[in-house]
Design a protein around this nucleic acid. Sequence first.
DNA 1: CGCCGCATTGATGTGACTCAAGGTGCGTGG
DNA 2: CCACGCACCTTGAGTCACATCAATGCGGCG
Lengths: 260, 260
Amino acid sequence: MQRFRISDTSRPAMAASQANCLTCRTAPFCIPGRDRQDSSQPPVLSRRVKVARGSKLFQAGDLVGERFYAIHYGTIKYALPSPSRHDKIGAFLMRGDLLALDAIGLKRHNGNAIALEDSEVCEIRQRDIQSRPTLLHGMVSKQIAREQSTAHMLRNSSAGQRLAAFLLDLSWRHFRRGYSPHRFRLVMSRQEIANFLALSPECLSRELTHFKQAGLLEVDERELTLRDPGALRQLATGAAAAAAHQQSARTDAMAPAAHA
Amino acid sequence: MQRFRISDTSRPAMAASQANCLTCRTAPFCIPGRDRQDSSQPPVLSRRVKVARGSKLFQAGDLVGERFYAIHYGTIKYALPSPSRHDKIGAFLMRGDLLALDAIGLKRHNGNAIALEDSEVCEIRQRDIQSRPTLLHGMVSKQIAREQSTAHMLRNSSAGQRLAAFLLDLSWRHFRRGYSPHRFRLVMSRQEIANFLALSPECLSRELTHFKQAGLLEVDERELTLRDPGALRQLATGAAAAAAHQQSARTDAMAPAAHA
DNA sequence: CGCCGCATTGATGTGACTCAAGGTGCGTGG
DNA sequence: CCACGCACCTTGAGTCACATCAATGCGGCG
């Protein structure tokens, strides 16, 4: 029921301006670590780059140029080219997420970064960050945790488990950013979700209706409402007798929806 | 057919000694980046720790203590605890691989690190590395690339694809370390491989015999011989018309077995 | 209007999981 | 020593979940 059309998928990304993390309102979700507030350090400067919906921030083969990105607003998908059929989507990045940190030691990018909605990213130069080890450590930790939790999610054997884990991850990330964890918009298409979860679109659709029928959620086009995050969590963790499974010291990655 | 017994799975890891990367023979596979040779910098010192087969280097919940590890020799598996059944194995680390870099910004470890054979690891303190950004960048890049390629592998839908990708990865890593890419020993059990690939042990066994019957490889207990890496690669990449797919600028992660 | 992309639903096949049994080598203890 | 238990691996039969193919509905766009 969602039918936007992207007529021009390759119009160039444009418009740049200066930015400063000290005054940035995205920074609390973006930069981990305490020394962010440390104003005795020079502020991390970056160039802001707008990326129009459907256009590429960079693509596989592009020179990395010793810089990476933080999403200021919007959503970017990162996809690795695959010989067969469509590319494989490796991540959906939203406000505050880091992008292309994996390319920090590479000459050229391995994947494509495409905006799912009109977005703006902060371009960060390695040079500007490498004198701030605490900052870098926090970013690295955040990034690796995300990759690991993605792999962890993909090891969930069943389609329902994977979908539940995905939705809870989205929920948590919205919550962390100050939005409602119960109701939010899916900026990506069903096909893209299915791709990310390594499922067929049909299977994803069926799982969604199963969840709907079980009263776990409601979904109207791309508007999602979680009705029973607890049950979703039980599903995601492999159900069973996962009763007293409290966790603390959370990072930004794949996390519980016990925020009610 | 493999039947070692680990009587005591929790005897403590012991014995420490000093080590120096400048003279270490593992360094070429371990530390990426060019400034490793830079002797104007102080050498990276580290403590070597022996880990007996079956014992834990650390486990989930242990304090991180602002240090991580590089494998000097041996093999370590890193597994995340899972409420249901067995832990999920997230990585097999061998000579030169980095371990616990994901914990760099955390207080406590998320997973268990268990030696699959008698091993020795270099304990690296964050402090000692953070004045060497090039070094750190290289390590970060290497680590994230590994995580990404694991996730990429797990998105391969079929059991054969995943297994082929896994074997080629092992082959490549042996090759990089100066060992034969065609013949090597599997230090992990079938169950552990199956766990890592998110397959049932039975399915893994069947795929192995399929590969054997197809003449792609031979396997005697844990001794593996790759007979047709090219065919394996076609399988792993999703077969199809993946003809002219040359790649350069390789990292250490999931890579071709075009080395013949 | 006709086309196309997206999403859902149904019918059907199949690949992987589950359960079960059998074989093997090691370690232990009678 | 040998019987036994055990951990590991393999193989077979049956089942189920997911992929595949196909048809339909919907809405935007040319």
